[in-house]
């Protein structure tokens, strides 16, 4: 039932599902925007098949090229892609509501929250689960890049990884450089076809 294509379902139904998805993901995301992206990929690409894997990566690039929080930006692009402006609006509200509620409650009970040992331990150990979720998605994505059998893309992936992880190169520079390489590569291919 859930695997039905988006086009066969009413806008209201799809929007409600989008809201539920972004709300639950945003509420359970400790550790930043990439965790949301990993979980969205799992839900929308692998499970519901509303989006393709390549599309999901394109959208991640769009979310990263815009200012603001990655987790909110990815919700906006995905919402727009699936149900235009209404989808974007619904997804944004879904993504923002959980932190809004949680922080409002905590700002009232801050002292009790800060000093609670159980909460501190739970938040520390939960990071292991979050890391596992990201690795699961990374394995799938890296496999799809390796499957292209293009030395250029595989090499770019390895270098970009080293640059961000070990040399702290900023995301904007990586996006600009890789986008340029992409353009040059396509123009080169076109020329070869013509000659």
């Amino acid at each position: 039932m859930e695997e039905k294509s988006v086009k066969d379902q009413s806008t209201l139904r799809v929007c409600w599902q989008l809201f539920v998805i972004t709300f639950t993901l945003s509420a359970s995301t400790f550790g930043g925007g990439f965790v949301i992206i990993s979980m969205m990929k799992q839900k929308l690409v692998t499970k519901l098949q509303w989006l393709g894997e390549a599309e999901m990566l394109d959208m991640t690039a769009i979310a990263q090229s815009s200012p603001g929080a990655l987790g909110v930006n990815i919700a906006i692009v995905v919402g727009y892609r699936i149900k235009k402006v209404w989808g974007a609006l619904v997804c944004t509200i879904g993504a923002v509501l959980p932190p809004l509620i949680v922080i409002s409650v905590i700002s009232v009970f801050y002292n009790e929250f800060k000093d609670n040992t159980y909460i501190a331990i739970a938040l520390q150990v939960m990071r292991a689960g979050v890391a596992a979720v990201i690795f699961d998605v990374v394995i799938d994505l890296a496999k799809s890049i390796i499957k292209t059998k293009s030395v250029l893309w595989i090499l770019m992936m390895v270098i970009a990884f080293a640059a961000t992880c070990f040399f702290k190169v900023s995301a904007i520079i990586i996006i600009l450089v890789c986008g340029m390489i992409g353009i040059v590569h396509t123009t080169w291919e076109n020329k070869e076809v013509k000659s």
């Binding site: 550790g31 930043g32 990439f34 965790v35 992206i37 990993s38 390549a54 990566l57 394109d58 991640t60 690039a61 990263q64 990071r127 979050v130 890391a131 990201i134 690795f135 998605v137 990374v138 994505l141 890296a142 890049i145 893309w153 595989i154 770019m156 992936m157 390895v158 270098i159 970009a160 990884f161 640059a163 961000t164 992880c165 995301a171 990586i174 996006i175 890789c178 986008g179 340029m180 390489i181 992409g182 353009i183 040059v184 590569h185 396509t186 123009t187």
Partner: peptide, 21 residues
């Protein structure tokens, strides 16, 4: 062309976030 070039970069950045976490 731009999008194909960005895909490996995005995978790399997600991987990097995973490693630091």
């Amino acid at each position: 062309g731009v999008l194909t070039g960005l895909r490996p970069a995005v995978v790399a950045m997600i991987a990097s976030a995973g490693v630091s976490l």
